[in-house]
Nucleic acid binder design. Structure first.
Length: 156
DNA sequence: GCCAACGTTGGC
DNA sequence: GCCAACGTTGGC
């Protein structure tokens, strides 16, 4: 499957991911049940993931990653010092899950939200639907390919 | 900084 | 189970 994950670059940017060992990081801090279910139940090793910068100007897709570890408990929920602490989650009964993603490529060209809205081929894309706030969401293969094309990548 | 569109919480 | 109040997301 294909996915899109959002991150505020001030919090964790694609450059931050590029600087991690193996260019890999766990996708912690997701505290939305729908997004959790995607990570816990549906994201599979090898799935491709678009990396999206939100809350920045302009917002848009900046790179491609892949899932390298499937859903496992988000330990930041157990850490009282963490901003993501949730007392209702425990190691015995974890409430929140995460996956590991590895950077594949930074797009040669930034694909802005506005450019995606302007592209008729992406009409109906979940990301573009009004009021959508999900930080982890599925993307159709044809949408994924179109965004890579817009970003200047031409891989299979 | 504003605010629309959510999602969550908790009293009843 | 309803729904008002509150909190968060994220574009603008």
């Amino acid at each position: 499957m294909y996915w899109l994950v959002k991150s505020e670059p001030d919090t964790f940017s694609i450059q931050d991911l590029a600087g991690m060992p193996d260019q890999t990081e766990h996708w912690d801090g997701v505290r939305n049940y729908q997004a959790r279910n995607f990570m816990r139940d549906e994201m599979r090793k090898g799935d491709k993931v678009l990396f999206y910068h939100s809350n920045t100007k302009p917002p848009g897709v900046v790179g491609v990653c892949s899932v390298v570890r499937e859903g496992y408990p988000d330990h930041t929920a157990w850490d009282p010092e963490s901003t993501y602490f949730d007392p209702k989650s425990s190691p015995e009964n974890p409430r929140w899950f995460m996956v590991d993603i590895q950077l594949q490529e930074v797009l040669p060209q930034y694909v802005s939200l506005d450019a995606m809205k302007q592209n008729p081929a992406l009409e109906g894309m979940r990301l573009l639907q009004k009021g959508n706030r999900l930080s982890v969401l599925p993307v159709q293969e044809r949408e994924f390919r179109e965004i890579l094309r817009m970003g200047g990548l031409h891989i299979s």
